[in-house]
């Protein structure tokens, strides 16, 4: 399935490396972008493309926290729990999310929209508390801002409060 649909893309990816196995992470990303997770069927398919055994693919998949082996909610909320964010409000943020969505880390809302995870440092330490939702970063969160973001996501599928190209602090002369 994956191979037929993305034939050209896969050829292009393989062309970047002198050894086939190096294309493993890019192909796993391709599978996850397609289905939201990496199924065992996709792993077998990828193993075939790269002349690997399925266990060789599986052992790699299980090493990386971003690769989901099970389907998850449409929006994957990942809250940074490392010290720098914890100093400025990880616990509060988890509390606000719980108040709004009724879920704790590891849980998914009954409508299948939101899955909540705690993750380690996302390189956003000066702008905590923060979370990543799918591809986007949301930083300097307050309860009000969080609620707006979750409402935006539910209604529009995205939120304008996501961080753009990162610079912090923004120099005063640019802040006009």
């Amino acid at each position: 399935m994956l191979i037929e649909k993305h034939k050209d893309k896969i050829t292009e990816i393989l062309g970047r490396y002198p050894e086939k196995r190096a294309a493993l992470l890019p192909l796993l990303w391709l599978a996850q972008e397609e289905h939201g997770h990496v199924s065992e069927a996709a792993m077998k398919e990828i193993a075939g493309v790269l002349d690997l055994t399925p266990p060789q693919v599986y052992e790699t998949v299980t090493f990386y926290t971003m690769l989901n082996r099970q389907p998850i909610g449409k929006f994957h909320i990942q809250v940074c729990r490392s010290l720098m964010c914890a100093l400025v409000g990880t616990e509060q943020l988890l509390g606000w999310i719980h108040a709004k969505l009724g879920i704790k880390p590891g849980q998914t809302t009954p409508d299948g929209l939101f899955t909540l995870s705690q993750v380690e440092c996302l390189a956003s330490c000066g702008t905590g508390p923060m979370m990543q939702v799918n591809d986007d970063y949301f930083e300097q969160l307050t309860q009000e801002k969080l609620n707006r973001i979750l409402d935006d996501l539910k209604r529009d599928g995205k939120s304008p409060l996501a961080t753009g190209p990162f610079m912090f602090p923004v120099p005063q002369h640019m802040n006009r």
């Binding site: 970047r16 050894e19 196995r21 190096a22 294309a23 493993l24 992470l25 890019p26 796993l28 990303w29 790269l50 052992e59 790699t60 090493f63 990386y64 926290t65 971003m66 690769l67 993750v119 380690e120 440092c121």
Partner: peptide, 23 residues
């Protein structure tokens, strides 16, 4: 080349293993 969530891959030899499609 995108990583997939593993702090240790910032260590240069772990990075090399990761680039080669391994743990």
């Amino acid at each position: 080349h995108r990583g997939a969530g593993a702090y240790i891959c910032g260590e240069e030899t772990a990075l090399l293993e990761s680039m080669e499609g391994k743990r």
